[in-house]
Write a protein that binds this DNA or RNA. Structure first.
Lengths: 281, 281
DNA sequence: TGAATAGTGTCTGTGAGACAATATTAT
DNA sequence: ATAATATTGTCTCACAGACACTATTCA
């Protein structure tokens, strides 16, 4: 390597990428949405669930286990394009909110070979989806019980129930960064339980100080519905007045109302893009 | 791919990684610290600067430009091990606070070949460093002027001044996520200005709700010094009483004092790990 | 003595949590 | 009339911002 090059072109001509280690890079996507369950009582609001899309593996490794949709990143494909492409394959949707989560690089993540995977979280409005999914894909409702040390996940798609447990250990001199480890898991492939845990944590966090929820909402919605979505993400009930205060300058009231449900009808609201509406934090 | 395999071993025997695209994966590390400048007046506190470590490139591409320390990830190397290894090379330090920032995967990031890079931020206490750096490395003091739309960086290592500008555009239906673009840059290699911007933003953010600052502090420090560190990271002055309230339950007073500076001596404090000290958020 | 930092007291306004009260519909 | 949700009012408490004040050192 002691040779002296005069120009960049000259240097590049002599450069052989094959001399370096090459790895495989994949992407995994945590596709999130909110599902409604029909209620027996016509007066009640339909119960909401936070749900994610999983795919059943049909080949080894991890045959018959569930995993996140994902795939290889093409050699000439922009990194962000890969999750978009896969998202379009799975849901037929474009222009979806997508955010990079974390890159996982354990040496033995995949028994086939060394694979490093960049994970993304995607938020979709289920109303925009057609009903048919790819044959091996399925939406699972997610229930998360969490304390200081562990996260207990239960996923349910109506036919099958999956549960796994993630351990949280606080890193040194931080307050927020946990190191996640899989404590119990037998139906999810790869290290995908970690991705699910990371994604939910991120979402829980961000819901408080961003407007990302609206990516999971239809154009018009009632404040009750919006509150339900906040509640399933945060995993707790919110007080009405407090909630309304918080979202007051994120939404605008329309003239439409939603009636027909055995109780006072509610106005439909719409997401209001931030501009100079009072405090523009 | 229609062949049916009975077991995972059988499947793996038939699996040829060479059939898939292989990429090169590197890591770049934003090594951050706080530097003190000697003051002419013996009474004054030494002025503090936020500083990062850059390396001068000696080869093409980007010959003679500055970049972040980094390198390839070995085929059998755990992802997190690579930045640790490079950090040890550059600073001779182990057990450093390290956090993954973001994975960059633009197709033309590197003119040599397709390279995807996972960036990390590392926080070090400069007092733990020996004085000698690797020959082509240098600490730059960072000044950042930021508004809603742009970040203006000025880096200075005493001999050379580098400046670049990052544009921020708000993503849809978010409040916090900006898409960063390089508006002006001629002395920093690759897309590393983006990494610097992302790292500083992350740090600014996290300083408020975590204890990461203490990774840049020596074991004993005065509250004045600690406040200075917060101030250089946040880029603004803080009010004493408010600051003391905030950090009150993160530090513990020791019996030592620091005197000798033409003014009232201050107690030395120490980082106090959180346990059941009042609110344990 | 004076410049400089260390450290404390306290007032005020904002905003979240909590609870209560009122409004409106379909059956 | 009743169950159910929609919507608003308001009290309290915690806490951040702001400013003022006192304390202590050493050339």
């Amino acid at each position: 390597m002691a040779k002296e090059y005069k120009t960049e072109e000259e240097f590049l001509k002599d450069y052989h990428p094959e001399d370096y280690d090459r790895l495989s890079l994949t992407t995994d996507i945590l596709i999130c949405s909110v599902s409604s369950e029909e209620e027996e009582n016509y007066r009640k609001l339909s119960k909401k669930y936070f749900s994610i899309l999983l795919v059943k593996r049909e080949d080894y490794p991890f045959k018959d286990k569930w995993c996140l949709p994902g795939g290889f990143i093409g050699i000439k494909e922009e990194l962000e394009e890969a999750p978009k492409r896969i998202l379009a394959q799975e849901t037929n949707l474009h222009n979806i909110y997508l955010e990079q989560l974390y890159t996982y690089g354990g040496v033995d993540r995949d028994p086939r070979m060394r694979v490093i995977s960049t994970s993304y979280i995607a938020l979709v409005d289920k109303n925009r989806l057609q009903d048919q999914l790819l044959p091996n894909a399925s939406w699972f409702n997610v229930t998360l019980l969490e304390d200081e040390k562990e996260m207990h996940f239960t996923l349910d798609n109506g036919e099958e129930t999956i549960s796994f447990v993630i351990g949280k250990t606080l890193k040194e001199q931080t307050t927020d960064r946990y190191k996640y480890t899989i404590l119990k898991n037998d139906k999810i492939a790869f290290d995908h339980p970690l991705v699910i845990a990371a994604g939910l944590s991120r979402l829980k966090n961000k819901v408080g100080y961003t407007d990302i929820v609206f990516n999971m909402m239809p154009e018009y919605f009632t404040l009750g519905e919006l509150q339900q979505v906040y509640e399933v993400i945060l995993g707790k009930k919110l007080l009405d007045p407090a909630f309304r205060r918080i979202i007051a300058n994120k939404v605008e009231k329309t003239t439409k109302v939603q009636s027909g449900g055995g109780h006072r009808p509610s106005y439909l609201f719409r997401y209001k893009k931030r501009k100079e509406n009072g405090k523009n934090d």
